[in-house]
Simulated scan of single mutants.
Amino acid sequence: MVQLIGDAAWAAAGRPDPGVTITAANVRIGRGAMEADLEALSVPRARLIDKGFLQASLRGTLEFTIPGFAQFVRDLGQD
């Protein structure tokens, strides 16, 4: 989680060169952007769970319920 906030803060600061200081304001903007991204995913996530394609396994993780579908998705990323 800290790494995600750090990356979002770095992006909010305009991805500065090494040695440039990132401010607390950049961190607040980055955290807000990250939370907005998570909220945008909640509806599609809920729909996929409702349809039975996914199930919540551990806190913050999902798993596919259709046999072979995880491998299918991994293979799509190889193209």
Rank of each mutant, 00 (worst) to 15 (best):
R74M: 13
R28I: 07
V73H: 06
L58C: 05
Q71W: 05
L38S: 07
G68R: 09
A9C: 08
E35I: 14
R74K: 15
F69Y: 15
V43E: 07
D37R: 14
T65V: 09
T65Q: 09
I5A: 11
L62H: 12
W10P: 00
Q78T: 15
L58K: 15
R15I: 03
W10Q: 06
V20Y: 02
G68K: 07
Q3C: 07
L38C: 09
T23C: 09
R15W: 03
S42W: 00
V2P: 01
A33S: 13
R45A: 04
A46G: 01
A40C: 04
G77D: 13
R47Q: 13
L4N: 10
G68Q: 08
V27G: 03
A56G: 06
V73C: 12
A70D: 12
D75L: 14
L58W: 07
T65L: 14
S42Q: 13
L41G: 10
T23R: 10
F53Y: 14
V73E: 08
M34Q: 11
W10T: 11
T61E: 13
L54W: 11
V43F: 00
K51V: 05
M34L: 15
A9F: 07
V43Y: 01
G68T: 12
S42N: 04
L58P: 00
E35G: 01
V20L: 02
E35Y: 12
V20I: 11
R47A: 09
I49Q: 04
L4D: 11
G14I: 06
S42R: 09
D7V: 11
R47N: 08
E35A: 14
G52P: 04
G30L: 07
F64I: 08
L48H: 02
V2D: 07
D7Q: 15
A40I: 03
A12D: 03
A13V: 09
N26K: 02
I5Y: 06
D79E: 12
P16Y: 08
K51E: 05
T21S: 05
F69I: 11
I5W: 05
T65F: 02
G60P: 11
K51D: 01
L62M: 12
L54S: 02
L41P: 03
G68H: 08
P18Y: 05
M1Q: 10
G77V: 11
E63M: 10
G14H: 06
L41D: 03
R74L: 15
Q71Y: 05
M34V: 06
